[in-house]
Amino acid sequence: MSNVVNVGVVAYDPKVVTIWEGIKEYFEANGVPMDFVLFSNYDAQVDALLKGWIDIAWNTNLAYVKVHRRTDGKCGVLAMRDTDVGFTSKIVAGAGTGVENLGGLKGKRVAFGSRDSGQARILPAYFLKRNGIDPARDITAIHFDLDVGKHGDTGTSEVEVLNSVMKGEAQAGAIGDQYWARALSENLVDSGKVRAIWTSPGYCHCNFTVRDKAGEQRFARWTDTLLAMDYNKPSDRKIMDMEGLKRWVLPELDGYRALFEAVDEFQFFGA
């Protein structure tokens, strides 16, 4: 049996190859041979993990929940990025719409991202409902179903949500905090036209999922090597900047509770 650890990764952008070539080199330099396998969508990656074609899947929160359901909770989790912890969704509203808080959304046009985006669709809808706004009845939802299958990784639907609010097509919209922070930092937002009015409770985003709990031990050396990546080393920093983290951390599984509830509530995987 080969001792090469095969990690599944969804190719949502050409940079994914550059990132994972760098990660592969890092692991090999540390005596832990690994390779990566690219998938075009998370459903295919989840299937490959469950069939044993890959050892580890770099999954979104939604893909993790799917693996968890299909393994009856027997899957394991190895690690995640520091930026996967405490992820939030934002509700942004257009200036002059009178929307100052969640209550103000009633009767308004609200834009959401792709139907399989945890941060821009599923969780915002879930949290709105928890706060007394039923997305199916209390608002007119505008859905930007772009790059479906990639679970919102490409960010294209969030770009459209923000644009629709800035253009006044939607009076408010739901996006992830990472895209909001980038949009602010890169001056893509006209503060005179749109501003954030609400932040969701924190939840977790991506993680490295394995088929079974025993995998956490089986791949312990791989995990330890990953956790040893050091942002203050220039060679490691290059990879970490591209992957959007400063530190790999152990999983915080409590952060998936809201998504488990949301997929049940909206029967995302069927009744």
Binding site: D82, T83, G86, F87, T88, K90, E100, D177, Q178, W180, A181, R182, L184, S185, S191, R195, A196, I197, W198, T199, K246, R247
Partner: peptide, 16 residues
């Protein structure tokens, strides 16, 4: 700024 809290929470996470 009424949005500062929402903006700074997101920015803090992004910038570690």
């Amino acid at each position: 700024n009424p949005s500062a809290e929402h903006d700074l929470t997101a920015w803090s996470r992004l910038t570690a």
